[in-house]
Simulated scan of single mutants.
Amino acid sequence: MDGLDLLKQHWNKDGDFPKVNKEEIRRMLYKSSSSLAKWIFFVSVIELFLGLAFNAWFFFFSDVETGRDTDPLWLEIIDQSINVISYVITFYFIYTFFQAYYKIKNTNNTKDLLNDILVSRKTVNQYISFNIYLIIISLTIGSISFIIEKHIFDKSTGEMMLYAIFTIIAVSIMGFFIIKLMKFYFRLIYIRLVNKLDKNYDELVQLED
């Protein structure tokens, strides 16, 4: 239980506990909301740098290790285009998270704070959906790359069907577990922070009522 919850629990109930008025509770809710929005922003930035580091490692070492590049030019263009677009969208979300943090930190109006919390919750949900769709697209491109590398279309009909079925099953299983893992991560980090923001939202509504 954090300090804010402890104060709310004892607010005007315990004679030995320091009295806290409504305005002090409101200020603590403002501060708590600002801290939560800050952590949402920080985590998204950390994720971006980890993604950049992984891509840099993959770019500089994967071709050296394999010694060849089997993907055709058109697939490389699509893959790199999706990477660029994904980073542009990620930067947009990070900027939006920063804006939310800045607004929540500097607002002194409860109505504005409530609106900023709603916007933050909506943005986080959009960010989670974007990452899940990005995983699906990446798996699709990986499947196409695998098919091209194995020259499936040059094989007999039976072999081609066997490879196609194997690829679909393997990618589906891998995608299922990856998405489950990502949802667990997002639930552990982002949803937890958003739920606390929602709790602050409800507390502020009660204070205003």
Rank of each mutant, 00 (worst) to 15 (best):
P72H: 13
F59Y: 08
F59V: 04
I46N: 03
R68N: 08
I46Q: 12
E47Y: 15
F41E: 05
R68T: 13
F54W: 06
D69W: 06
F41R: 06
L50A: 14
I40Y: 05
A37H: 07
F60H: 06
F58C: 00
S44T: 12
G51A: 15
D63C: 04
S62T: 14
S62C: 01
L48M: 15
A56T: 09
F59R: 08
L36D: 01
V64C: 02
D63K: 09
D69Q: 07
S62N: 07
F61S: 04
F59P: 02
E65M: 04
R68D: 06
P72E: 11
L52K: 09
P72C: 02
T70K: 14
S62F: 03
L52H: 01
D71I: 04
F42P: 01
S44Y: 10
L48W: 14
L36H: 03
A37K: 06
N55E: 14
W57C: 05
A53D: 06
K38A: 10
F42T: 13
L73A: 11
F54P: 00
L52G: 04
F60W: 12
G51R: 13
L48C: 15
V45N: 00
V64E: 07
F41S: 07
A56I: 06
E65T: 04
D63Y: 08
F54L: 14
V43P: 00
F41A: 08
T66K: 13
R68Q: 12
L36W: 01
F49K: 03
V64K: 08
F49V: 13
D63Q: 07
G67N: 04
R68C: 03
A37Y: 05
K38Y: 10
L52N: 01
W39K: 05
D69V: 04
E47R: 14
G51Y: 12
V45M: 02
L50K: 14
F61N: 08
P72W: 14
I46P: 09
P72V: 04
F61Y: 07
W57K: 03
I40N: 04
N55C: 03
V45G: 00
L73W: 15
E65Q: 06
F60K: 08
F42M: 13
G51H: 12
F42E: 14
S44M: 04
E47K: 12
F60C: 05
F54Q: 08
S62K: 09
F42I: 13
D71N: 11
I40R: 00
F61G: 01
T70C: 06
L52I: 11
E65C: 01
